[in-house]
């Protein structure tokens, strides 16, 4: 079965750059660029959903 990459949607208007998603991501997929989060390495994503679960600002949506 093909391992399909997830889509990580970031709502930049909501993001406050608190680093919670970046720090809790076990695979270093995300990074803070400027003041908001952006996807650095989508291939490494294991769809654990930690970023979406813990984001206090409703700024990340992961669709597997």
């Amino acid at each position: 079965m093909e391992n399909k990459l997830p889509t990580i949607e970031i709502i930049e208007k909501y993001c406050k750059g608190c680093y919670i998603c970046v720090e809790f991501c076990p695979k270093q997929v995300l990074e803070i660029k400027g003041f908001v989060v952006s996807v650095k390495n989508l291939e490494a994503c294991i769809k654990c959903m930690q970023c979406e679960l813990r984001c206090p600002d409703f700024a990340i949506k992961v669709t597997a």
Partner: peptide, 17 residues
């Protein structure tokens, strides 16, 4: 009403979720 007023890193957003 979003984004909410809570500071960056405030846990209230996590509780709201």
């Amino acid at each position: 009403k979003l984004p909410h007023i809570w500071c960056p890193g405030c846990g209230h957003g996590i509780v709201m979720k």
